[in-house]
Structures are given as structure tokens and as C-alpha cells.
Nucleic acid binder design. Structure first.
Lengths: 388, 388
DNA sequence: ACAGTTTCCCGTAAATGC
DNA sequence: TGCATTTACGGGAAACTG
């Protein structure tokens, strides 16, 4: 029995796939009241095994949650996977008390394996999932995911329940890799050295070489000095903005995004007027994006200008490509001119953004039914974004 | 006992107040999974009564729903209401089977009164609520409310379960009153004779006098010929548009709203160029609003023009008052002019709509921290609506 | 196949707990 | 009192079901 138990121990695996359609890339975060599935697989085969293997799933007792739905299941053959044994659960988590949890602690799904029909040995062994975080509202997802990231970045310990009572520091090299991965795993493009350096400066202040610098959990996930939000919440809202509103432009590499205002000035100043770049807002918690361009003022002096950043709210009614293509400045005589000509370094804006704009609605000719030609069709309109 | 029973019967009243924050004006529609309260009051007082009166609420067995939560309660004194007996329930409705229901049938909440402590007579009497409709998604609200309206417009019968198997016809006079009430009960303004006449024409076609004309349930609530939506759904989306986006303008009486294109031409043509009115879209299911103005073309001929109607989607990012104030036509030389001057009959648009626009953002002076005065503050932008 | 109906669950707002 | 956390439920979309 002991030999068998040890054999099983090394062959027993838990695979979790929470059903979160909008966040398939963020497993290990479970929301109360939302179904998730849980798959358990046995990595060794016993062709001659006569006993039924039963599985039971439960949640770590230290936290006050329970699981709704069946939590026991018989393992059976999986056709798709060369006949190994597996079982899949689907259930909801419900808080047992109202006081509780959040992301400052991790939970584990505990999986117990039984052999029914076999009186001698009942509980064979027990394993558990990677740590999971339970949230009660999707607005807690950013912080929940941050703690998953920090945990897996800094420990291989499978069940370090007290990890967040004194979270260890990470190095910039580790953090940079994780941050870039947040982009590369959900878009076609990770972060460049330049972008990462801007982020390092935001976290650590000016420094020649960030390699080896230490970053605390508080720096990463507690409110930044003088701001009502953390570095991670700020960045995660930008990731969300990119994924939902400007994914194509990001994938094309058109969005410089993370660049300091000083460097922005340095690279734009020598360029011809009308050269612009796209940059994320530093001050907006919700994630915002703006464009900055170079122009000559009436005295011929070089000026660097930016518009107030656009947020998801505004990008809902108009795509960013259309805003860029349509943006105009209105002079005193109501004449509109566009200050944007070349995307840095020198891509004509039409080449970069034209293909992401809906084609102009061609006015339809008046189609009969109105012999006197008196009733006009509706005039098409569009929103444009202007600076008076 | 019989005497007592008859006495009670005439004194027994059910008051229902479903908790629907967004639709407090649409009681009698219950959504599965959403809490509602149910208050039962006894209209006679028995100061010397020694027995406890118990209440039980259940739902009409002919339909496959059940109620979650306690459905029995002891009636007790209500301080607020001169000491009459009452009981209040709070519960959820859940379908027992997945096959079922919707608005083509009405349900009743059945309330049973018991006298506990009294062995001789247990069930004293039974009453029921006004008919209720159960929906499973809020998108069913318009049709559900339509059936509540039709039922209460055409029958006083308290429990006519088969009403919708062969729904009776109503007269235009009845329908007009109900339609006007849909506006007057949730805004400060009902419908004028002119507006109602436009609606009658939409339902019944051209006619000299609509009084006494018959309107079937199908005309009211089944898809209109050649359109993918019913008269009521169209109108209800307009009511929703008014309540959520243009309530102040509606209350002021600035929105003519329901007017045929012919009549619109007739009243605008004699007016000076720039005179405009506001009208709902006839073709949009979702509820849309447009403006129509009179202008002179290059030959000096009078033209009537409308823009493509604005929907909730667009009104989310910009208020209708701001759209009206900012709307411009762009000529070939990128010069913008507004074709809107006077709200019909002759109110200058600034007088009517100026007070509903957010004040222009005043550009802030550059506030130090930049001794070389090289970094510009963000330029403010706004969306405007233009026709090229 | 398809339309009427229900389920799922995000995201905002309000309520509740601490 | 203010912040952290949960509940409530509208609304869009997918899934279901006859």
C-alpha cells in the first residue's frame, strides 16, 4: 500500500480551467457565483485496475468558502488523451460568511483520491491545485491577478499559505519579464527595452541601470505616492484598453505608449512639424491614450503639444484610428486644420491608420418615390474631435 | 364562520410593490432572480382578536414557477398605517422547469389567509393580486408591460386567465389615453392631440376621425408590416430614450417628436431659414431622434433637411442639447456653419438649449513647475457632430 | 433551422461591513 | 467616518429548447 501510495503521489496532477470567457487568460481567479471547471488527471495508467477511483474536491478550510454542486466524481477513461484517467468538475463558490477574503491571501483547491470498492484503503492520497484567489466582483480582478503573478514569480513552494503576510521583494528583472508577458500573452507584442525602462523609472525613479533593483509588493500593488491607485492597477487598465480598443494598432507597433515626457520632447523636436506619437496617460487610473505632436508656433519656435487623453468612455463611440484621422484644430475663423501628419518616425498617418477607419459613407442618390424631389434623404453625420 | 368569512372577503386587499429600481413605474412585472416585495393588508380592524392571522403567498399553479424564501408570515400591527394588520414578503421567483411562460399569459399571486391557534377554521379565505407577468430577462420588459396595459385597459375581471388566448380589441380613445399616460406618469408631459394623431395614423392609416376606431392586440404588439418590430416596442424605446437622455428637453416641451414628414414640411416651409424642430425616428427600433430644418439652396429654393437620427449609443457620449448647439455643416473649404437657428416656432436655439450644455472648459494658464515654459498643458478637446 | 426564451456573467451602482 | 468588500441587477451575448 505504501509503495502504491508513493507511486500515485508522483503521478497525480490537478489541472484547473476556470470558465471565465472574458478572462480565459487569467485562470486561478475564481469569482463567487460564477461556474468554473476543474479537471483532475492521473499520470500513470493501470490497465488491470479493478477498482473505481473516486475524486473529491474541496476548498482549504482556513477560508470561509464552500463549493456548490457535486464535489465527488468517479475517474474515467479519457478518449482524447491516450486513455488516462480523469474527472472534471463544474461548480460555484459561495462565501459562507460575509466577512472575508479578497486577494491578500491565497487558497488552494484540495483534491482527495479515494478507492471505492476497496475496503482496506480508502483515502489514498491528497493533492492540491496551484493557489487560487476568490473574488466577489469582477472589479477585484486586477488585484487578484497581481497576487497570482507575485506568488508565482517569487515562490515555487506549492502551498505557501502565509506568503502574503510578509510578501518577499522581487528584482526588476523578474518584474520586467512578468510585465512584458502580460502583453505578449494576450497580444502579438510584448514590451520593448525602451518601454520597460520607462516603467522601471516610474517604479524606482531615475537610475542608470535597473537590473538587480528590488521592487516590493507595496511598490507594485499599493497606491503610488500622491495618487489614488497602484502601479499595477494603472498598468492593468492600460492592458485592458489595449486589448479592447486599440489591439490592431498595438500589434502593428504604432503605439510607443510608455515614454517619458522628456524623452518624447527629445525625439520629436528634431522632426518636421506634424510628426506625432501615441502615448498612454500617466495620470489616469482608468487607462487613457493621447497623441503628442511637434509644431511651429507663430514665432517659428518648436512646440510640443498633446491632447487630453482619451478614455474607454470616448473610444466607445469612436475608434482611436478615426479620432487620429479626424482630429482638427479650429482657428478663430472656424477653419479646421489637422496638426497630425506623420506617425513617428515618418509614416504618413493615412498609411498607418487609414485601413482602420470605416469607409466614408457615400451619400446615396435620391431613390425615386418622391417625384417632386422635395423630400431629402437623411444627411449622414459623423463625430469629429476638435480643439477650439 | 360564514359571516366572518364574508366580512373578511370584502376587507382583504393585496398590495404588491415589486422592487425594480430602474422600473418603479412598472409594477406587476416580475423578473426571475430579482427580489420583489409583496404587502398584504387587512382593511378591517379586530381590536379584540385573540387569534394570530397567518398569510401564505403562492403563485398560480397553472404556470411552472415557484417562489424562493419564506412564503408564510404572521400579520402584525402596522404603526405607520393606523394599526391595521399587514405582512410584507420579499422573495425571488424561479422557474421550476425551463419550458415556459413569457408575456402571452398572465399569472396571479395567490394569497391565502389562515387563522392559526384556531382549530375549527383554518383556511379562512383566499384572494389574489392583480395579474402579474414573469420575465426572465429585462429585454422582455416592453412586451410584458404591453400585456399589463392591454389587460387593465380592457377588463375589470380580476382573474381572467384566458384573456390572451383571444385578446379583445380596444378603441383608439382607450389606447390614446394609455399611451399619453405612459409619458405623463414618468415625465412632466403627456401627449398632445397633434402627437396622438400622428400615432393614430401610424396604427390605423390616414383617417379623418380616429375616435371609435378599433385597434387589435396584434396591431399594438405584433410586428408592423415590413418591419421587424411592433408599434409598442418602437414607442417604448422612444419612452426610454426620453427618460434617460432627453428628459429635460421633453419636459420643456421642446420635442415635437411625433409628426409626419408631410406635416413637418408644411409647418417648416413658411418659416425663415434656420428654423428647426425635433422629431423621433420612425424607422429605428431602438429609439432615435433627429432634427429637421428649413434652408434655402443655391437657387433660392426652400429645402427641408434632416440628419440621420441619433440613438442612445451616440447620446451616451454627448448630450442632445450639445449636439444641437454644436452641429455644423462642413463646406468644401473646411469651413463650418450651423444650419440651426430657431427652434420652431421662433425660439433662438441658445435660449432653448444653452442651459443644458456643459460650460466650455476654460483653458487653464500654465501653472509653473516648468521654468523654461516648454511643456504645454493638455489641449482640451470636444466631439462635435458634422456633416461633410 | 430558427425564433422565442432562458442562462450566463460583466460592470455599475448601491448596500453592507469593518 | 471612510474604505473594503459584497450584493443587486440591467443589459449584451451565448446557450438552450421545443
Amino acid at each position: 500500500v505504501d509503495l502504491f501510495r508513493n507511486l500515485m503521489k508522483s503521478a497525480f496532477v490537478v489541472e484547473r480551467q476556470p470558465c471565465m470567457p472574458m478572462h480565459p487568460d487569467r485562470p486561478l481567479v475564481i469569482k463567487t457565483g460564477v461556474q468554473f471547471t476543474n479537471k483532475v488527471r492521473l499520470l500513470v495508467k493501470f490497465p488491470e485496475l479493478n477498482y473505481q477511483l473516486k475524486i473529491k474536491v474541496c476548498i482549504d478550510k482556513s477560508r470561509k468558502f464552500n463549493i456548490l454542486g457535486t464535489n465527488t466524481k468517479v475517474m474515467n477513461m479519457e478518449e482524447s488523451n491516450n486513455g488516462s484517467l480523469s474527472a472534471e468538475f463544474k461548480h460555484l463558490v459561495r462565501p459562507m460568511h460575509l466577512l472575508l477574503a479578497g486577494w491578500n491571501g491565497s487558497l488552494f483547491l484540495i483534491v482527495k483520491l479515494f478507492m471505492s470498492n476497496c475496503i482496506d484503503i480508502d483515502l489514498i492520497l491528497q493533492t492540491h491545485s496551484l493557489p487560487v484567489v476568490v473574488i466577489s466582483n469582477i472589479c477585484q480582478m486586477p488585484n487578484a491577478w497581481a497576487s497570482i503573478l507575485w506568488y508565482n514569480m517569487l515562490t515555487n513552494h506549492p502551498k505557501n499559505v502565509n506568503f502574503f503576510t510578509k510578501p518577499p521583494v522581487g528584482t526588476w528583472d523578474q518584474v520586467a519579464e512578468v510585465l512584458s508577458w502580460q502583453f505578449s500573452s494576450t497580444t502579438k507584442r510584448g514590451l520593448t527595452i525602451e518601454q520597460l525602462t520607462t516603467l522601471a523609472e516610474k517604479l524606482l525613479g531615475p537610475c542608470v541601470n535597473y537590473s538587480g533593483c528590488q521592487i516590493t509588493w507595496a511598490k507594485f500593488c499599493k497606491n503610488m505616492a500622491g495618487k489614488g491607485f497602484s502601479f499595477w492597477v494603472w498598468l492593468d487598465n492600460i492592458i485592458d484598453l489595449v486589448k479592447k480598443y486599440i489591439l490592431a494598432l498595438w500589434n502593428e507597433g504604432y503605439i510607443m505608449g510608455f515614454i517619458s515626457k522628456e524623452r518624447e520632447r527629445a525625439i520629436l523636436s528634431p522632426k518636421p512639424p506634424g510628426t506625432f506619437l501615441l502615448r498612454f496617460s500617466e495620470s489616469s487610473k482608468e487607462g487613457g491614450i493621447t497623441f503628442t505632436w511637434v509644431e511651429k508656433d507663430i514665432n517659428g519656435k518648436t512646440q510640443i503639444q498633446s491632447v487630453e487623453p482619451y478614455t474607454k468612455q470616448q473610444l466607445n463611440s469612436m475608434s482611436f484610428a478615426e479620432i487620429i484621422m479626424g482630429y482638427k484644430i479650429m482657428d478663430a475663423t472656424n477653419i479646421l486644420v489637422s496638426p497630425l501628419v506623420y506617425l513617428f518616425p515618418e509614416i504618413p498617418k493615412e498609411d498607418a491608420f487609414g485601413k482602420y477607419c470605416r469607409p466614408e459613407a457615400v451619400p446615396e442618390p435620391d431613390v425615386g418615390g418622391d417625384p417632386m424631389n422635395t423630400i431629402q434623404p437623411y444627411l449622414k453625420t459623423k463625430f469629429i474631435c476638435v480643439t477650439p
